[in-house]
């Protein structure tokens, strides 16, 4: 398990094909068609971004560790694969997921502290009783079938970074890409090392090391380093020269183009990338998965830049919460 991802409950029970994911979600939708029509929600990834940003804010209040927040995000994603979101109180689910994840990551916060800080962060939660978090914890664990140990890509990143001679800057960048990957389905689709390699690839393609403007960018993003999760990747992934809102899309397109055009061209792009390409060719890593993961991330950044609006997401939630009240 913990040593071997392939024997883990994550690999066995919580990794799906895209078709399986779609089927699970269709099933939920079919069972809840009426409220789906009545309470439309923004794109799932936008909702994920909204939740992630709020988890970060709650995490700061609790001085929770980043890995615990990542674990909480996984719990939430898994939970909503089995439960219709419109029938829940997402703020309560977020608070409970953080509470449980902090315990699982061996850095617990007291339930009263979690409740108080969550109530401050989410006035819409409407919960003032500790037992509601305790109760929701039962529901969460039960729904997740007690499969609570999560394998994150961060460990693979830390192991692979020295292998490819990643600079601190590149490693931080890859780390941020992994943070952003929790807003996609990638963690439900692929093993953690695939996501880590994809993040390294993006770090090397989009941000060639040693560019002064890149360093500047890093300096500005590292001012957030003390916070559990850095600010949204949309800003960090902007290429050093890009500047404008189209920056991510432009470099993302180049990454995509490069991938579809085959890896060979990258060998000329720099020694680190060359090494990565050679390594990928020799290893048994699922290349199709890496190509797909890259595309998922690229399209996440496009969507993030163009459509993310915190208020829209929040209003969609408060609307169904008000509408579903018995």
């Amino acid at each position: 398990m913990a040593a071997n991802y392939w024997d883990s409950t994550q690999a066995i029970y919580w990794t799906f094909t895209k078709a399986e994911l779609a089927e699970l979600r269709n099933q939920i939708q079919e069972n809840n068609q009426q409220i789906h029509t009545k309470f439309p929600l923004p794109d799932r990834r936008l909702m994920n971004i909204y939740m992630q940003q709020n988890l970060i804010k709650l995490g700061r209040r609790l001085t929770a560790r980043q890995q615990a927040l990542a674990t909480a995000q996984i719990y939430i994603k898994r939970f909503y694969l089995r439960v219709e979101m419109r029938r829940t109180n997402p703020f309560l689910i977020m608070a409970t997921a953080v509470y449980l994840a902090c315990k699982m990551e061996e850095a617990p916060s007291h339930i009263r502290l979690v409740l108080n800080e969550a109530a401050r962060q989410f006035p819409e939660m409407g919960v003032s009783d500790m037992s509601r978090i305790g109760e929701c914890e039962f529901a969460l664990i039960s729904t997740l079938s007690s499969r609570l140990i999560v394998h994150h890509p961060y460990r693979s990143l830390n192991e692979l970074a020295p292998l490819f001679g990643l600079s601190n800057e590149e490693q931080t960048f890859a780390h941020n890409v992994i943070n952003d990957s929790y807003n996609t389905d990638l963690s439900l689709l692929y093993p953690p090392h695939v996501i880590a390699i994809t993040a390294i690839f993006l770090a090397l393609v989009i941000r060639p090391a040693g560019q002064p403007s890149g360093l500047q960018n890093y300096a500005s993003s590292s001012s957030h380093a003390s916070s559990p999760l850095p600010s949204p990747g949309a800003h960090q992934i902007s290429p050093p020269s890009g500047g404008g809102p189209s920056g991510a899309a432009v470099s993302a397109a180049s990454a995509q183009q490069a991938l579809s055009g085959g890896m060979a061209g990258f060998k000329a792009a720099g020694p680190k990338l060359g090494k990565l390409v050679d390594w990928l060719a020799e290893s048994k890593v699922d290349m199709a998965a890496i190509v797909d993961a890259t595309q998922e991330l690229v399209s996440l950044y496009e969507l993030w830049e163009q459509q993310y609006n915190e208020r829209t997401c929040k209003e969609a939630i408060t609307k169904f919460m008000a509408g579903m009240k018995p």
Binding site: M1, P108, I111, M130, G134, S145, S146, L148, I149
Partner: peptide
């Protein structure tokens, strides 16, 4: 009886026994 949050020890045992 009320929900007060599951103890760290129970959480550990549940998660580890499920995995191992």
């Amino acid at each position: 009886l009320q929900y007060t949050g599951i103890s760290q020890s129970a959480i550990r045992e549940m998660a580890l026994c499920t995995e191992l």
